[in-house]
Design a protein around this nucleic acid. Sequence first.
DNA 1: ACCTGAACACCGTTCAAGT
DNA 2: ACCTGAACACCGTTCAAGT
Lengths: 197, 197
Amino acid sequence: MSDQVPLRSDARRNRERILAAAEDVFLERGANVTLDDVAKRAGVGIGTLYRRFPTREELLAATYSARFVAFAASSRDADTGQDPLRALRSYLEQLVEHTNVYRGLAALLGTVLQVGTPGCIATSAEGRRLLANGQAAGVVRVDISFDDIVCVATAISLATEREASPNPHIVHLVDVFLNGIASRLNLSDDRFHAQQQ
Amino acid sequence: MSDQVPLRSDARRNRERILAAAEDVFLERGANVTLDDVAKRAGVGIGTLYRRFPTREELLAATYSARFVAFAASSRDADTGQDPLRALRSYLEQLVEHTNVYRGLAALLGTVLQVGTPGCIATSAEGRRLLANGQAAGVVRVDISFDDIVCVATAISLATEREASPNPHIVHLVDVFLNGIASRLNLSDDRFHAQQQ
DNA sequence: ACCTGAACACCGTTCAAGT
DNA sequence: ACCTGAACACCGTTCAAGT
C-alpha cells in the first residue's frame, strides 16, 4: 500500500545504503546507537534517513525484514505437522535467538513486530499459525493469544540478550513458559517427548 | 554499609525532598522523566540529586523502597503456608501491579531490584522464600530460579503497563506463567483451586 | 522529488565556585 | 561537607536551501 509508488533511482540506492549501514552498525553496537552514525556510515544526510525511516522501530524492522522472512520460511518448512508443541517450542527458541542478534532489540520487539514489514508480517503469521495448530490439536491452551507469545519472547530475550549464542538458558526459559513453573505432578514430561522420536 | 555515616542535616533534608519530588513526578509522568524536573520540583540543584543518586535506577529504587517494604511484609503476612502455589501467584500479581505504578519502570525492574535498597532486598527475599516453599512442597519445578521469576514479572509488566488497574490481564498472564502455555491435558486445574476454598 | 546539514531543542553529567 | 547551576557533550528532529 505505502510502497506502491516506485522511488527515484538515487532514492532507492540511498535506501539500500542505509539498510546495509544499519545492519553493520546495529550488529556492532546494538539497536540503540545514534542514527547519526548509521547515516554517516551510509554516506547520506541524516535528513534522508529520517525521510525513509521516521522512527527507529521502522528502521529496525526494515533492517530485520530479510532475516525475519527467512526465519518464518524455515520454521514453516521444518514443521512436519507431527508435533505442534515441538514446532511452537522451536519457533520461540529461534525467535529469541534472532531477537538477540542486535543487543537492545529485546525491549523493542513488540513495537518492531507491529511494523508492517514483510518480515514482521511473515513472522507474526507463522507464530499465529503454530499457535492455532497447537490449540486445534488440544496441546496448547485456548486462552493464549499471539500477544502472549510475543510477551514471552520479549521476557526471555531481555533476560538473555547479553549471553552467548547458542544459549541453553533460552531453551530452559522457553520450557518454563511452555510447561509452566508449576510441577506437572502426576503428568510425566514423557507425554511430550514421546512423539519426537 | 554505605549509609553508616550520618548525613549533615541539610543534606538529609534535601535527600528527603528529592525522594518526595521523585515520587510525585514519577507518578505523574512515568519513570523516564528528565531528572532536571525532579530536582526543580525538589527545589535543589541538579548536582545535589546526582550526588545522592548517581543513576536513575538508584533514585527509582530509593523512591520505591518504602512501597516495596510494605509489599514484602504484606505478602509474608498473607501467606498462611497452606498453598505455596497460590502464595506465589499472589506475589507475582502484586509485584506486577506495583511495578506498573510508575509507567516505564517495567523495563528497569531487573536493574532496580538489584539495587541494595531495603525494599529491593525485602522483595527479593520474599520472592526467594515463596519459591523455595513451593519447591519444597513439590508444587514448583526445582529448576526455576528467582531470576526466572523476575524475568516473567518484567514481561508481564511490559505487556500491561499501559492498562488500567486492577487488571485481569495480569491475572491471566501470571496464570500462563505458572501453569504454562501447554495444556495440562488430563490434569484438571481443580487440583490447584481445591485448596483455596 | 529528493538530498543535505545547519540549527534548534532537549537531556545527562561534570565541576569550578561558593557557603 | 555540601550545594549550586553554568558549561559541556551528545542526541533526536526539523526545515530552509539547494540540486
